[in-house]
Nucleic acid binder design. Structure first.
Lengths: 210, 210, 210, 210
DNA sequence: AATGAATGAGGCTTCATTCAT
DNA sequence: AATGAATGAAGCCTCATTCAT
């Protein structure tokens, strides 16, 4: 402990992430508007004023949550796609696995529901999320589908529409889990759900075999 | 005026529904929390105080909105499924078309997003919605899929999971349209989207052709 | 009392003026920024929320104070100038008397100090005040001085500068009275002050008599 | 380093004045309430906490600013008056020129507006300012006017009132410049303004020439 | 039944002040 | 002596809810 950064400083540098983590859990729980900054501060173990040492506003805090949690996963996914060799359906599987480990089974899985719920009331946030997450994610998937079509693995398709259709079940999985799933007595296992989705994709996207 | 119900009285009895209709449109537009009762009253053409003659609270109004708005739609779908003869994939197409005309292109299309957004803040409401809408809808679709498997049209599958996967893109269509679609510069046409979904289903669900 | 407007309604119509009056006294006492709306409400005998039934914001309340108190006096002054016949020095005396009875000896006398104190922090308010009060007042006085020069009563002068110089002692009178005058043990009587000012003007502005 | 005060110590002793200087410029710019101690500290190149090593509170800092900034200026004026020989109107011109170079065109020009704005919120400060600045300034001017009357240069007058009337345009010049002047599109040139004031004084104060 | 004026609790944000280092 | 992270008390504004008419 002698040669490491003094604890005080380490604390300070870690603060924004700690606060963002506390904010994420509350945003996901209650939504953006219904989350009180008092609660965020309390959950992070600081006072309300401290939040404003690190973030200019509630919206800035939100943006940080997105930047910190979701953007890195996208970057990794882009890297995966770039380096991938082999069948396109395998690439899709890898991307899905990456998303699942980086988002789907983490607290960040609550973000899609959060965005859907608040987008119309906070256009600024929606724009930010669209620019930094959605646009990039769709571009990534569109490239993968185009790759599959080009290689003859997939049948010709309306790629823009297909991207949305392919993403939809994945998003719904986490959206559902953070909203109405609480009412289900026998919820479908996510693994089964995703496997079914992949199977549907597999047989449905490949070129018709004679 | 002698033999029919006096217009004044009929008006009075219709009030709650009129108010609920006004509330629905605003809830769908802005969400529950961001909808002000002033606006609801104004859109309904009454004073704010009048709302409290018919509803105990904003939350009570919300309940009524959901109850009035969604239940009737399922009944028709169940009737269609019951009377259907012919291929199962055709049944799915009919159900989709029915849903589109009864929900997808009406103001009710905003309800899924509304429920997703508010479910965690209003568990009781979520329960009601799940019980009266989701459960019935899923049962309907599960029966259709089971019919297809039984007839050999569809490959064997985890029906519970498949139901969720099949519904997901449809729900996402309207949820998206009421949330983040506003950020898209070139939104996919719903017709293309649904066609792509159906095509994916079609080739993906049929038994493997030799 | 039978034929007059019902008290409730009369109350409502009188409200904005009552609130503006309460606000004026506090603004003058403490300044714009340091006046809390709670205090305004309390002094007016209403709740804080009630203020917002009549004014969109603290700034709107301020503007109303100006509109209500100062603008009418200007309008009357303009009318006086328009109708005036006789010597210009007499016109100046009439304008001064009008200002004294309409502003100088009323609570509105606190407004110049208020504006001077807050102008740099609330440019929007400063702009409003300049547009509605200062510009008009200066134009009025400039016309009077020009009239005196044209008629040969006054010596030629830089009218723009003279307007400012002529107004200055009048403004300072009330500004002083609402700021540092509290420290004076033997304050000059306003009547003496204004008489001295007028005398200075009289002998100073007339064309040099041989 | 041996014979003079060590620079470090000199620095330390100069600190309060440096801080007060930084505070003055901000108080003049924004007023007392709107000046944040963060900004004062930043402009002085120290941390916010350091301010509290030298001043107990924001108010204490304010007091120091006034005490440091204004007293020395009057001494020179008193000396000028004492040594003056020649016409009294010339003395007035000299005093005005001295004031202009020592206050009017320096950052201290902001102090009158600052005092006017805050006097009612800080009575103690107002008292201090009145005692050390205003009283002395008025006494100086009163003596000059009395001198002119005694010598027959000026007509008999209410000297107390005349002092206030004579000072008013000069104070208003700097007060205006730090408040509502920002709204003026064609501000009067200070030189013209002061010249007009002097001319008005000249012709207005001399004994009536037959 | 209907109105709409009035309320007051609650949220975001700011900033003078404190204190551990 | 100096720092700067942390605090918490206010202030403006919103809006669900109440109640006199």
């Amino acid at each position: 402990m002698s040669h490491s950064t003094p604890p005080r400083k380490r604390r300070k540098e870690a603060r924004p992430s700690e606060l963002a983590a506390a904010a994420l859990s509350l945003f996901v729980e209650k939504g953006f508007a219904a989350t009180r900054l008092d609660d965020v501060a309390q959950r992070a173990g600081v006072s309300k004023g401290t939040l404003y040492l690190y973030f200019d506003s509630k919206e800035a805090l939100f943006k940080r949550v997105i930047q910190e949690g979701v953007v890195p996963v996208l970057i990794e996914a882009e890297s995966i796609a770039l380096k991938h060799e082999g069948s396109t359906i395998l690439l899709l599987e890898k991307l899905l696995a990456n998303w699942w480990s980086g988002i789907g089974e983490t607290p960040y899985a609550g973000i899609p529901k959060l965005m859907v719920a608040e987008a119309s009331n906070f256009p600024e946030l929606a724009k930010f999320y669209h620019e930094h997450v959605i646009r990039r994610g769709k571009a990534l998937l569109a490239a993968a589908l185009a790759r599959g079509v080009a290689s003859g693995e997939f049948a010709p398709m309306n790629i823009e529409a297909a991207v949305d259709v392919v993403i939809a079940p994945i998003l719904m999985l986490v959206i559902w889990h953070h909203s109405l799933a609480c009412c289900e007595s026998n919820p479908v296992d996510p693994k089964d759900y995703l496997a079914t989705h992949l199977k549907l994709l597999g047989t449905g996207l490949v070129a018709t075999r004679v």
